[in-house]
Amino acid sequence: MLGRHSRLLLVAGLLAAMPFGAGPTHAATPDTYDPWPGLVQDIFNNRPMDDGAGIVSIEMPYRAEDAAIVPVTLRVKMPPADTRRVVAITLVIDQNPAPMAARFELGQDSSVSEISTRVRVNNYTDVHAVAELSDGKLYMTKTFVKASGGCSAPAAKNADEAKARLGQIRFRQFAKPTDGPQSGAREAQIMIGHPNNSGLQMDQVTRLYIPAFFIDELRIWQDDSLVLAMRGGISISEDPNIRFSYVPNGAKRIRVEAKDTEGHVFQNEWKVENPGI
């Protein structure tokens, strides 16, 4: 799947030179090239997809304040009577140079129901969320975002500051004072210091493009049980930030491992407050 990354970059480059127009429903018009059918072939091997309105939702601002850090939230909306589970959610930003922003794998026993992060958006675009269920079926939903230039926006931190923060991982757990052993889902957040260079940003001193350099793998465990894994690309914003809801299993620690495209491996772990929850 990722082996076709170069083809996606080429397609996105051609798209950037084409006029973009959107009707009231933001669907492609005869004068506007719609990349989605080709992305379905390249990313999902042309597998059939059903309407995912009752399975997964995607929330993003209609007009982004900052195209380099656009918030996105994915929510699992499986009906209680449905015995299947969501195995993975793929986030696709259609008009980005590398459209597949991230694939999130949900741990079998973690009951992850919400994932939030920040992404770069390069052009006005549809953004798709595709959920893969345990029976192998795919369900798709989408939204539309007005933003431009996110993938080429200069880094917020200078090179020295970014280097000093490289690989620093922080963990936060969010719990209400009334939470107890029967409270169910909790929220947590993983923050990683990393420039996540897109390869499209220019060094303001040398006027040369900064090579792509980003977190491409992330795994989060409760003890030895997988909570969430991410395979990311250049669309994930600088200093990747993943917030998620999950059901604690009584583990005494949360472990995180991240890898980047230069082979660095970053690890950390934390004791869990109230491990009996």
Rank of each mutant, 00 (worst) to 15 (best):
R219N: 10
K77I: 00
D260A: 12
A12E: 01
T83Q: 06
G276S: 12
G107L: 11
G23K: 06
A98N: 03
S225N: 10
C151N: 08
N122A: 03
L106M: 10
F244Q: 11
E65H: 06
V56N: 09
H26D: 02
E262G: 13
V272R: 15
D179P: 15
G199S: 05
I58A: 02
R172L: 06
F144L: 01
V127G: 00
W221T: 07
Q222N: 13
R255F: 05
S152Y: 13
M18W: 02
A185R: 12
S198I: 06
V119D: 05
Y246P: 15
V40D: 03
N45G: 02
E187G: 15
H128W: 08
V86P: 11
L106C: 09
A81I: 03
I215V: 14
N122F: 05
A188N: 13
A251R: 14
R84M: 03
V121Y: 02
I210S: 11
G3K: 04
P154M: 12
R7G: 11
I69P: 11
D42N: 13
I234R: 15
D179W: 13
G180C: 03
I254T: 13
G150V: 04
Q201M: 10
P275E: 08
V145R: 08
I115H: 11
A101R: 07
T206L: 03
R63W: 04
A67E: 08
H5I: 07
G136L: 01
C151I: 07
P211L: 11
T143G: 04
R85T: 14
Y124S: 06
S237Y: 12
R47D: 01
N46H: 11
E273M: 10
F44H: 05
V76Q: 12
A251N: 14
S57Q: 00
F213W: 15
